[in-house]
């Protein structure tokens, strides 16, 4: 039995630009709803009137605490202060927000301010019987998984490969309560120093051929021709010979253990 806090942000639909649940934050809430928790505290820092917050309530939350602050403020200090008063065992959040700075720095800064460990890219959490530690599973590239043991308390960021979030239901979304707590937040000077403009897609960089070697003919050839292999050829071997050749090739490539 653990005390879980979930940090939720407002996302942005990539096509329509409407406010929505941030996908990984919704997965974090889904994971929190599946944990054996004595208390679940959902926190949002920003505008309490955002319609997307009701979508989180519709997933089965009773209430959501919003630290009301203006746009362009740094939410780390108020969030950390609020979390310190709650002292949760596990803090869950998505690994990347969408719609703001999107740097993925907030969980790290919150964890550093609270002085607790951070586990990135989590897809599953199992709390051990005593409640003093948890077994977490991280998602890696190429569908691989890694298991770790972490002592509570910790901050975990949720990977997009985590189990998908349940849909939001209309009734609970209407019934849920949003508690607005006005807080003092310092303006974000780092973000204010950056110039923002609409994103324009750049042409994809052609990464063919070794750079600086050969001329235009080589680059054209690398871009257009099908790649030719090293060309080892066995014509009509017996099945066992063929199997051995394949097996050795796979071992050499490192996909099979030697």
């Amino acid at each position: 039995m653990v005390d879980v806090a979930i940090l939720l942000s407002v996302g942005r639909h990539p096509v329509s630009g409407r406010a929505r649940r941030a996908p990984t934050d919704a997965r974090a809430l889904e994971m929190a709803l599946g944990l054996p928790a004595v208390r679940r505290t959902a926190l949002h820092a920003g505008d309490p009137a955002s319609p997307a917050l009701r979508d989180y309530l519709g997933m089965g939350l009773d209430r959501l605490t919003v630290l009301a602050m203006a746009h362009g403020c740094d939410p780390v200090e108020p969030l950390a202060a609020h979390l310190r008063s709650l002292s949760p065992g596990i803090v869950l959040t998505g690994n990347r927000a969408e719609g703001g700075e999107d740097s993925g720095m907030l969980p790290y800064r919150v964890a550093h301010t609270l002085g607790v460990a951070i586990v990135p890219d989590v897809v599953a959490i199992t709390v051990e019987a005593g409640g003093g530690a948890a077994e977490v599973v991280q998602a890696l590239a190429r569908g691989q998984r890694r298991a770790l043991r972490v002592a509570l308390p910790f901050v975990a960021t949720i990977h997009p490969a985590a189990p998908s979030a349940r849909p939001s239901a209309f009734g609970p979304a209407r019934r849920g309560r949003i508690d607005s707590v006005p807080v003092e937040a310092p303006p974000d000077a780092f973000l204010a120093a950056c110039a923002a403009r609409p994103w324009r897609d750049r042409p994809k960089r052609l990464t063919v051929g070794a750079p600086g070697s050969g001329g235009a003919l080589d680059r054209l050839r690398a871009a257009t021709e099908a790649k030719a292999g090293q060309g080892r050829l066995l014509v009509g071997p017996s099945p066992d010979e063929a199997a051995l050749a394949i097996y050795e090739c796979l071992q050499e490539q490192g996909v099979l253990p030697r």
Partner: peptide, 27 residues
């Protein structure tokens, strides 16, 4: 032409032989 190792043989004969070899080698 594309392959790094090309084997001119019937797949139906090679596949069971490869399965046997993988089991012999212990995985």
């Amino acid at each position: 032409k594309r392959a790094d190792l090309a084997i001119i043989a019937d797949a139906q004969a090679v596949m069971p032989a490869l399965v046997r070899l993988a089991r012999e080698r212990g995985h």
